[in-house]
């Protein structure tokens, strides 16, 4: 099975750890990096220019460049625009979700109830990915 090169963007350090572990446990992803906000995500992509991520999964609420800012940055950058961006948040406010989708998000997922359920979360996203891209 082809692994997805994913860039994770999440500002909570505890959550970063569990998120990465959850994604790796599934054996379905290469985690290219874990960034703390939009600026860091852009820096990571500039650093490893030869491998662009297949997928960016970004938290919405982050200090500095937040998920929506990062989404807009990616969609307005010709070399990055093709990369699907999934926005995650604990928020399920319809106006927030609509805004993300209108800004070009590939999907909006509310975060799993706890950090230790990221493996299931990662599997679900992988299966959606397969249906869409294979």
């Amino acid at each position: 099975m082809k692994k997805i090169n994913v860039l994770l963007v999440e500002n909570d350090e505890d959550e970063q750890l569990f998120m990465k572990e959850g994604f790796l446990t599934t054996q379905l992803y290469n985690v290219l990096g874990v960034a703390g906000n939009g600026e860091e995500a852009v820096a990571v992509m500039q650093e490893i220019q030869e491998i662009l991520p297949d997928l960016i999964i970004s938290d919405l609420n982050m200090p500095g460049m937040n998920g929506l800012d990062l989404l807009q940055y990616v969609k307005n950058n010709s070399t990055l625009a093709h990369i699907p961006v999934i926005i995650t948040s604990t928020s399920f406010t319809p106006t927030v979700i609509d805004k993300c989708m209108l800004s070009g998000a590939y999907a909006y997922h509310t975060k799993p109830d706890s950090f230790i359920e990221y493996d299931k979360f990662a599997e679900k996203i992988y299966h959606e990915w397969l249906q869409q891209y294979s």
Binding site: D12, F18, S89, S91, K111, F115
Partner: peptide, 22 residues
Amino acid sequence: FNTIASHDLQEPLRTTYSYLLL
């Protein structure tokens, strides 16, 4: 308040919940 309730209040709650499960 919507934003605060949906995010700022839920985040720390999720952290304690996660560690309790752990």
